Simulated assay, not measured.
Amino acid sequence: MVNDEVNNKAINIEIKVAQYSAKAILKAMKKIIEDADEKSQPLADYISEKRKTNSRKLKDMVKKGKLENIDEQIENKFYAFKDYAYRRKINWGFVRDKDTRLYINNTNYTKEMNNENWKRLEDLF
């Protein structure tokens, strides 16, 4: 019985993440189409040009310290968890490390940890 409830909760979280992901993908696709139209370029040419100018390997970005989290859907997951936790009245938060200290955020997702949303875990507990 408990396993079924846990499985159902996990499935609900995955569904929410998929919904947020789909919305984000649609929004990005619309923006790309609009940008291509503004430049009067065929969509395939615009995408090809963008890929050449903006491509960087994620491994290289992580090695250079420019990107710690390589999960491209992390923001969608954050808001899916936030919504789920709110509905179920669960205390939660995303935890990251910075300079050997742990920080937690459960308000608004930001990649930059110098934001007021990221609070030192030791200050809260």
Rank of each mutant, 00 (worst) to 15 (best):
residue 17 V to Q: 00
residue 18 A to N: 13
residue 24 A to Q: 14
residue 25 I to C: 05
residue 27 K to W: 03
residue 27 K to G: 01
residue 28 A to W: 03
residue 29 M to R: 00
residue 30 K to M: 09
residue 32 I to L: 05
residue 34 E to N: 08
residue 36 A to T: 02
residue 37 D to N: 14
residue 38 E to D: 15
residue 38 E to K: 15
residue 39 K to V: 03
residue 39 K to G: 08
residue 41 Q to G: 07
residue 42 P to R: 07
residue 43 L to W: 06
residue 45 D to R: 15
residue 46 Y to D: 13
residue 47 I to D: 10
residue 47 I to K: 04
residue 47 I to P: 11
residue 47 I to M: 11
residue 52 K to F: 06
residue 52 K to P: 06
residue 54 N to W: 07
residue 56 R to Q: 08
residue 57 K to Q: 12
residue 59 K to P: 12
residue 62 V to S: 07
residue 63 K to N: 11
residue 65 G to P: 01
residue 66 K to A: 10
residue 67 L to H: 05
residue 67 L to G: 02
residue 68 E to F: 11
residue 69 N to E: 13
residue 70 I to E: 10
residue 70 I to W: 08
residue 70 I to G: 07
residue 71 D to Q: 03
residue 72 E to G: 15
residue 73 Q to F: 13
residue 75 E to C: 04
residue 76 N to Y: 07
residue 78 F to N: 01
residue 79 Y to W: 01
residue 80 A to K: 00
residue 81 F to S: 04
residue 81 F to A: 06
residue 81 F to Y: 14
residue 83 D to H: 03
residue 85 A to V: 00
residue 86 Y to D: 08
residue 86 Y to N: 08
residue 89 K to D: 13
residue 92 W to D: 05
residue 93 G to D: 02
residue 94 F to M: 13
residue 98 K to Q: 10
residue 99 D to Q: 12
residue 102 L to S: 15
residue 106 N to Q: 05
residue 107 T to I: 06
residue 109 Y to F: 05
residue 109 Y to S: 00
residue 110 T to W: 08
residue 112 E to M: 12
